[in-house]
Design a binder for these strands. Structure first.
Length: 434
RNA sequence: GUCCGGAUAGUGUAGUGGCCUAUCAUGAAAGCCUGUCGAGCUUUCGACCCGGGUCCGAAUCCCGGUCCGGGCGCCA
């Protein structure tokens, strides 16, 4: 049996006279002597419970006076329209129960009268999320996921799961976390890339996966984590331009969905969300280098990966979402398809927000011989890729896809300073708990 | 990994060698108060990251450690 009849958000002054049962947390108790107020908080907001000493049952008043902040309480009472109350109503209680008393002192202050550092907040994340502005962010993240899934379903894309425990660090590059797998060593997967490509060979035609990826990199910045949620898509018989269109539609669609369906949460965050217009600007890698020449400082050579300074400069110059396309083949992974007439340039692209990279994708190499060649060029051993390469020998359609970082999408959408703010229980270089 | 900065009540802070028996806010405890909405007022409680050193004297200076923040690198 559900212990509440209404959320705070369900009550309005027009509901005056009805009996309600609310359940939530004791946000604040203000005892003025002859009158006392209990502010009850649930996920939708606040409701004021008013106790007039002369009119309320003395036992109820005594209970309320004994409530410690952040205890879980259940309140049964009658709604009364009251212009003096916040939101124009208050609840006159007939019964108040303490379901779970909170200890004091609290590890942080959910009423936000005192600031709190990120580290302290993450140590007591369960209490941090009781703060409406934090909760609102995660509710918006859920809405983003819902919007993305709907976009994928609408496009006839099948949701799949690929293994997170894998045999070997075959992709090269990124460091993987080794784990013990019975009598063998295994690794946590850094990306579903190889698996989604194999599913193209399987004839699944269009797949998406939303799941965790693990990277054992030492990176220690406000935009990197060692465990992240990746939104991966792979489409057969599509080229890089096709999947870029899908990507920009998915991203701007998520903004639109949030702006239309999360008005309360955006209000809590004080955000006026601007939906980015499609199509996003396309800039080739070579054009980006040209643009970056207009700034003082270190000059980039063609073939260098863009450094952080250049990335920031481009973001400031362009000022909105954009695609970086036509990268040098040498700095993109082996599965990225080079242009036939100009093999030093490839069909890889990055989706950029002015603050950082959000996604990267490409048209993939689907020709077995070329793929083996490319693997060798990257100084990797094709033998280690046999489970993957096998799928390319028995009929592999051309295909393209991308991977999008969920937390980076949410972080840039909500203008959060630190990616840790966009993850409920983040995993970084140092944090393994909670 | 590297460079720079930091660590003071539960939380957030002030304090650059003696005036620190350590500031302020929030909180907790007790009391007063009939319209609070960061309520107000009175009283009380609660802290210098760890180890070594310099000095008559260290929260403050030096060395080492641990932890934290920021920049960069790394990031298929």
């Amino acid at each position: 049996m559900i212990l509440r009849t209404h959320y705070s958000g369900d009550i309005t002054p027009e509901k005056a006279g009805i009996e309600v049962t609310l359940a939530g947390w004791a946000h604040e108790i203000r005892d003025l002597g002859g009158i006392a107020f209990l502010v009850l908080r649930d996920r939708e907001g606040f409701a004021q419970i008013t106790l007039l000493k002369k009119r309320v049952d003395p036992k109820v008043l005594e209970t309320v006076r004994s409530i410690s902040r952040e205890s879980v309480v259940q309140v049964r009472g009658t709604v009364k329209a009251e212009p003096k109350a916040p939101r124009g109503f208050e609840v006159l209680p007939s019964d108040v129960k303490i379901l779970s008393a909170a200890e004091a002192p609290l590890p942080l202050d959910p009423t936000e009268k005192v600031d709190c550092e990120l580290d302290t907040r993450l140590d007591a994340r369960f209490m941090d999320i009781r703060r409406p502005c934090i909760l609102a962010g995660f509710e918006i993240e859920s809405a983003v996921l819902r919007s993305l899934r709907e976009c994928f379903y609408k496009n006839g894309i099948t949701e799949v799961f690929t293994p997170k425990i894998v045999a070997a660090a075959t992709e090269g590059g990124t460091d993987l976390f080794p784990i013990s797998y019975f009598e063998r060593e295994a690794f946590l997967n850094q990306s579903p890339q190889l698996y989604k490509q194999m599913l193209m060979g399987a004839g699944m035609d269009k797949v998406f996966e939303i799941g965790p990826i693990f990277r054992a990199e030492e990176h220690d910045t406000r935009r990197h984590l060692n465990e992240a949620i990746s939104i991966d898509v792979e489409i057969s018989f599509a080229d890089d331009k096709d999947v870029m269109e899908l990507l920009e539609g998915a991203v701007s669609g998520a903004y639109k969905y949030v702006s239309e369906n999360c008005t309360r949460q955006l209000g809590v965050l004080g955000l006026d969300l601007q939906v980015p217009k499609v199509p996003f600007r396309r800039i080739t890698y070579t054009e980006a280098l040209e643009l970056a020449k207009g700034r003082p400082g270190v000059e980039m050579k063609w073939g260098d990966d863009l450094d952080r300074e250049t990335e920031k400069f481009l973001g400031e110059t362009i000022g909105e979402h954009y695609f970086l396309t036509d990268w040098p083949s040498s700095i993109k992974p082996y599965y990225t398809l080079p242009y036939e007439d100009k093999p030093e340039v490839c069909r890889g692209f990055d989706l950029m927000h002015p603050r950082m990279e959000l996604a990267s994708g490409a048209q993939r190499v689907h020709d077995y011989k070329l793929l083996v060649e490319r693997i060798k060029e990257k100084c990797l051993d094709p033998a280690g890729f046999e489970f993957y390469l096998k799928a390319f020998r028995y009929g592999m359609p051309s295909h393209s896809g991308w991977g999008l970082g969920l937390s980076r999408l949410v972080m840039t959408m909500l203008n959060l300073e630190n990616i840790r703010d966009a993850v409920i229980f983040p995993r970084d270089r140092r944090r393994l708990v909670p």
